[in-house]
Structures are given as C-alpha cells and as structure tokens.
Computed example of a mutant assay.
Amino acid sequence: MISKLVAQGVVGVLLASSTVAFAQDYPNRPIKMVVPFAAGGGADIVARAVAAPLAKRLGQPIVVDNKPGGGATLGADLVAKSSADGYTILYTTPGPQMTNPYLMSKLPYDPARDLVPVSSVAIVPNVLVVNKNVPARSVKEFIQFAKTNPGKVNYASAGIGASSHLAGELFKQSAGIHMVHIPYRGTGPALADLLSGEVQAAIDSIAVYKQHIDSGALKALGVATRQRSKALPNVPPIADELKGFDAAPVNYISVPAKTPQAIIDRLNTEINAVLQSTELQEQLATHGVIPQGGTQAEMVALVRSEAAKWKKVIEASGAKLD
C-alpha cells in the first residue's frame, strides 16, 4: 500500500514538473486567435489591433482566424474543443458565455465547463441615438415620448440576440416603456433605416453612429456606460436617468478548459501590458473603444455577473435564437 502511494506521488510530481516545463517554454510556435465573427466587424478590428503588439510581447506570430456563424457559437465551439495548450485562444464578446446559453436551447459546448476566461481586453461603448426628427433631446424626454406613444416607437438592432437588441430590451425594462423591436441582418441595414426614419431609435456602438451624430443626422441622447465617453464627451450616461444602466459589451479572451494556469497567467500578464500602450489606446479610441484589462479572477466574476443580468433581460423579453 505504501509503495503504491509512493508510486502515485512520484507520477504526480513528474506530471506537475512536465506541466511547469511546458508552460515555461510557452509559446514556441504561432498562436491562433479565433474571432467568432466576420472580418471587418467591430470585434475583428479590435482583435487585430491587440493581436499585433501581443505577438511582439509573446515572441510568436498570432494568426487571427475568423470563424463566424451560429451567433458566435461556431468559433467558440472550435476553441472549446481545441487542445488546452494555449495555442488556440478565443477573442470574444458576451454571446458565447454570457447570453447565448439563454438565447439558445442547446449549445455544442458547455460555456461554463469548456471555456475559461483569461482577461478582459476592452469595453465597446454603446450610445442611444434617435432619428433627427424624433422630438426628444434627452433620455428623459425620449422616455416620455415613448410613454405617450405606446407601441408606436420602434428600435433597430443588428439582429436577435445582438448586443444592440439586448441593450434595447434592457432600456425598455429599465424605463418601463413599450418599444417595438425591429431586427435587421447586421448593423448596416439597421443604420440605413434609422437614418431614413423608418425606425426611430437604436442603442449600438459609438463607432457605428459617431459620424452621423457629428453630421446632425442622428441625435445622441445617452451613452450606455456609467461614465461619459471621450468619443462623445458632451453626451451624458443613460445611467444619469436610469440608475445603474450599463449596456456596454466587454471584449475578452478565453481559452479551453484545463489550459495550464501558468499559461493563463502569462497571457493575462502580456495582455494587460499591451493595453498600457499609448499607441494602442489611441488606435482604439478612434473607434470609441476603451481598453480595459484586469485579473483573471475579475474576468471570471464579470462573466458570472453579466450572465445573470442578461439572463433576466432575455427571459423577460422572450428572445430566442432557435
């Protein structure tokens, strides 16, 4: 019995030693960063902006691999089922781990067991905008307008389950108003109808709407972060009117479960170092994006708290992707 325990202990020590050695050698070949969205979109732009300096710090190329489809589940599933060695990582937004579990009846992976958050990367601020002909100049006035016109005010989104959809539902529930959701196949068609007046409002990325706000075609009523945005310094937070309102999606990195902690720690350290770069901060600022790193524990906690928040919103709205 004693010899058996000793043998097991020796095996455990050898396995632990080999894991440490493996992590110390990491990385020694190119890393694949899977982005579960099409090239050219907001997440893809930020992912590529971060991947270049991160590759320099890690000393290995980072290949951005776009795997769109299934509401971001295809790319997430690919990473979840990859080797847990740090060479396939997921650059993602709330869908795969925070919202899709409640929008879809079945996922091809377990978002809690198969993926492990590493670090937050950025916050992508949304802004509540209305067509220039809507008689409202503030969040308070828009809420009153919607209350006096129940069912006659509609808002556009990039599609069912998109952050622009869920932000609109959160706004409706927080303000106690009834707006009609008009889902589109992407931000482009939604923007076109918003500019023409076919729809009255939307809550989506500042980067999408800023030029139209600057031109006067759209009116910005409130940003969906709890603080003002440098991109729209004169626009107050929606939270000034609706206490605690926050609908700014986080971009973050996840890896397959069972990835050695030493590799997770290395990735977290280097991601946070990259986000301190003035050059990267200025680059992201042009898109209205706020770099935001943090510890792994903070990102794990954020996934849990955001999942709980959006679960309530989704269940109240009845939204489904399948």
Rank of each mutant, 00 (worst) to 15 (best):
G244C: 11
A80I: 02
L221C: 01
G159S: 13
S215V: 00
L78N: 01
K56R: 15
P94Q: 12
I160C: 01
I271H: 07
A16W: 07
D246W: 14
N126K: 10
I271Q: 10
I31L: 12
A43I: 07
Q296C: 07
E306M: 09
L284W: 05
T93V: 05
D25G: 05
V153Y: 12
P125Y: 03
P108A: 15
V223T: 02
L90K: 04
V235L: 14
G159L: 13
N66H: 15
K320L: 00
P68F: 01
K4Q: 12
V118P: 05
K312M: 04
V303N: 10
Y102P: 00
T88F: 02
G40W: 10
G161S: 03
V199W: 09
V289G: 03
T269N: 11
H165W: 04
S196E: 06
Q173N: 14
K320R: 14
S174C: 12
D65P: 02
P30Y: 15
G293I: 06
P101D: 06
F245Y: 15
K81W: 00
A262L: 14
Q200T: 06
A297P: 07
P291K: 06
R185L: 11
L54M: 05
A51I: 06
G9S: 11
Q60Y: 03
G70Y: 11
V11P: 01
K67A: 00
A316R: 10
L115P: 00
I238K: 00
D214R: 03
Q227R: 05
A39C: 06
G151R: 04
M299Q: 12
A156M: 08
N28Y: 12
D193W: 14
A52D: 12
A84H: 02
A16I: 11
L191M: 14
V20T: 13
L74F: 01
G59S: 13
N131H: 10
T269F: 09
L115G: 12
D44L: 01
G70E: 10
P111R: 15
V13E: 12
F37K: 07
E169G: 02
A224I: 00
F145C: 08
N149I: 13
A217I: 00
A224T: 00
A146M: 08
A52G: 03
M98G: 08
F142N: 03
V130H: 00
L191T: 02
W310I: 04
P53E: 05
G288T: 00
A207W: 02
G168M: 08
K172A: 11
A55S: 11
G59W: 06
A175S: 06
P260Q: 09
L58D: 01
A146N: 11
P30M: 15
P68I: 05
K106C: 07
Q211K: 09
F145N: 04
S305L: 01
G59D: 02
S305K: 10
T269D: 14
A21L: 15
G86N: 08
I177K: 06
L302G: 06
N28A: 11
Q144V: 03
S317L: 04
A49C: 08
T93K: 05
P135H: 04
